[in-house]
């Protein structure tokens, strides 16, 4: 059995760990609220852009002269997986869930004989991906200096991606991030980034009827060509915002669990400490009584 002194030291150490996890939980909760607000503030823009894209999509037919971002390069041999993770750890299974989703797609693509490379946003996915797919990471975006994600950050990434696309570094880009549902649930999500998937949504058919007389300046194709890179930036921005909220949510839950576990540990150690102390006292008493009787 551990000595009284050793137990005391352990209790103190677990208590200070509990203090840290508790503080981290509070910080995550505060940041989560802010991240959620940012995500909500960005929603109107994304919704309107999607509506405009849908109504344009129903008017433009994809032909050989369509912009490459929409029509694709004509092959789908080289795939780029854009994996958005966090810059910091201690967020439960947040990062490993995203990386797992990316690996699943990567393995499926490799099995089909496609070329796969990775483009990382945030540093937490690097170690695993580097180990499993050595030499496949083409670039890593460092976000450690960014406190709150701004649209310009997403814009930079999207311009870099479009440049690489134009240079022919890849044919298809997939984006992986964690969609925020609640503080308890974050769903790893995959969306196709490039070429822009245009689905004639049911809303699009309705909009086409209503906006039949819309005038376009310059014309549909030019507006669409203008919109496509913007759409990619918006998708990235949304993913980053969702990711930020998910990260904080995940960290909050993880730290809540850690605090609770530390509490249980302290209880257990305290009981053990009291029992040991009691046993030591009893032994001492027996020794004294036995000594007195011997006289």
């Amino acid at each position: 059995m551990a000595s009284l002194k050793a137990l005391k030291v352990r209790i103190t150490s677990v208590k200070s760990t509990q203090k840290i996890t508790k503080a981290m939980k509070m910080v995550a909760a505060a940041k989560l609220r802010r991240a959620q607000m940012a995500a909500e503030a960005g929603r109107p823009y994304a919704e309107r852009l999607a509506a405009v894209m849908a109504s344009l999509a129903s008017k433009v037919t994809i032909g050989p002269e369509s912009p490459k971002l929409l029509a694709g390069t004509g092959s789908d041999r080289k795939h780029l997986l854009v994996v958005a993770t966090s810059e910091r750890g201690l967020a439960g299974a947040f990062n490993s869930n995203i990386v797992r989703a990316a690996r699943k797609t990567a393995d499926a693509l490799i099995a089909e004989g496609k070329e796969v490379s990775f483009y990382l946003i945030g540093k937490k996915g690097r170690a695993v991906i580097q180990r499993i797919y050595p030499g496949k990471i083409v670039h890593q975006v460092d976000q450690s200096h960014i406190k709150n994600v701004a649209f310009s950050d997403a814009h930079e990434v999207s311009e870099d991606l479009i440049l690489r696309y134009r240079r022919g570094e890849f044919d298809v880009a997939h984006l992986f991030f964690a969609k925020f549902q609640s503080a308890l649930v974050q769903e790893p999500t995959e969306i196709q980034l490039i070429p822009v998937p245009l689905t004639a949504t049911p809303a699009g058919t309705a909009a086409a009827g209503a906006s039949a007389a819309v005038e376009y300046e310059p014309d549909e194709e030019a507006i669409l060509a203008e919109l496509l890179p913007r759409n990619i930036a918006v998708q990235l921005f949304r993913a980053m915002l969702e990711n930020a909220a998910s990260e904080q949510g995940s960290r909050m839950t993880a730290m809540d669990n850690a605090t609770r576990n530390a509490g249980e540990m302290i209880n257990k150690l305290t009981i053990q400490y009291n029992r040991t102390r009691q046993a030591a006292i009893t032994t001492e008493l027996i020794e004294i009584i036995a000594g007195a009787e011997a006289l």
């Binding site: 007389a213 005038e215 376009y216 300046e217 203008e226």
Partner: peptide, 15 residues
């Protein structure tokens, strides 16, 4: 070019 929009403008879209 610049354009002004008043109430009741016809449906229009521009960059």
């Amino acid at each position: 070019g610049d354009f002004g929009v008043l109430q009741g403008h016809a449906p229009f879209m521009s960059v």
